[in-house]
Simulated scan of single mutants.
Amino acid sequence: MMQTDVAIVGAGPVGLFAAFECGMLKLTSVLIDSLPETGGQCAALYPEKPIYDIPAHPSIDGADLVAALERQIAPFAVPRLLERRVERLEGTRGAFSLYTDRGDVVQARAVVIAAGAGAFGPNRPPLAGIEAFEQTGAVQYFVRRREALRGASVVIAGGGDSAVDWALALAGIAERIYLVHRREKFRAAPESLARLATARERGSVEFVVPYQLRGLHGEAGVLEAVEVATLEGESRRLKADTLLAFFGLSTDLGPIAHWGLHSAMHHIQVTPSTCETSCAGVFAIGDVATYPGKLKLILQGFSEAAMAAHAIHPIARPETALHFEYSTSKGVPALQ
């Protein structure tokens, strides 16, 4: 049993910042996440992938962003319930109970859902015998350490941001990079596409288009080649040590989808000014939340975290008036 002012479901970057904003308002909080570590997709999938739109950071890797957010909330000693899934939500505004699959009961005055896209996993290509190569790491769906691919022959499959970004990030590290896509056109940021064109001209990345994955060749989980083919049946074998398959993520809100919250296209609808859902006292922020004009950016999620925390204050502290102060004036409450 645990009692707190705010239960934050999801410990990705936006959930971590929500804990900070609550702390700045002298509200206690607890972070609950199904993963074994904080950081959400940034930590689990893209720890070494650079992020370019965080204010004051021209570029920052996902793992470094999570580490900085952890340092930011350290003064508030926020408890974490990791490797837990919230199965049930009961109660009303000011008196909620959350029940996890590990038997925890969290009593909170308000709830913040910062679950991103929910539970996630990669969309796996339907290739015979792929499981053996997944177990040895010859087939991967994200890159945790670029250096592990130094000198390797890498096949990257996909046509979106992840495929393009990793082709660029591994140029100069991998010995050879094949970029496989079913058509000539890639779906990525214009600047990334311009850099990719330059890498292709320099020979850092070889385009294999229009091809699709057909098969894997090797023994005992050791990859030797990736077979690709066109729609007309023309095939090639690409010498490869590693296949990086980027075909997006399958996501699932899990039990949250059954909490009776108004939703649209698997996203929770909220009031833009407060991020409150259709259930009074329950808020949603980050990628899981939707409203007119919503941008799926981490920085927008940070703003939503601040708005939700201020909207929660009168719920958790109805007897105390909230006098807005800038952090430059009041500092960090826990350190005073």
Rank of each mutant, 00 (worst) to 15 (best):
E206T: 01
R202G: 01
V226K: 04
R187S: 13
A197W: 00
A199I: 05
S204D: 08
V209W: 00
R187N: 11
L238K: 05
R202N: 04
E232M: 03
T230A: 14
E201P: 00
L216E: 08
G221I: 06
A225K: 06
L216Y: 03
E232K: 04
E227P: 09
A197M: 00
V226R: 06
R237N: 12
A199H: 02
L231N: 09
L213E: 03
E234V: 06
E227M: 14
A240V: 08
S192M: 10
A188V: 11
G221F: 08
L193F: 06
E234N: 06
E234I: 02
D241Q: 06
V222D: 11
E201S: 09
A225G: 11
V209P: 00
H217V: 04
L193K: 06
V226M: 08
E224T: 07
A220V: 02
S204F: 01
L196A: 07
V222Q: 14
V222Y: 10
A194W: 00
E219G: 10
G221C: 14
R202V: 00
F207A: 14
A197N: 04
R202Y: 00
R202S: 01
L231E: 10
V222C: 10
R236L: 15
G215S: 14
R195D: 13
V228I: 13
P190H: 09
A197F: 00
G215V: 02
H217R: 05
A188W: 05
A199Y: 03
A194I: 01
R236I: 05
G218I: 09
V222R: 15
P210K: 08
L231W: 03
G215D: 14
R214C: 07
A240W: 03
P210F: 07
A220P: 02
L231M: 07
L238C: 08
S204E: 11
R200W: 06
R200E: 14
S204C: 01
R195G: 02
A199C: 02
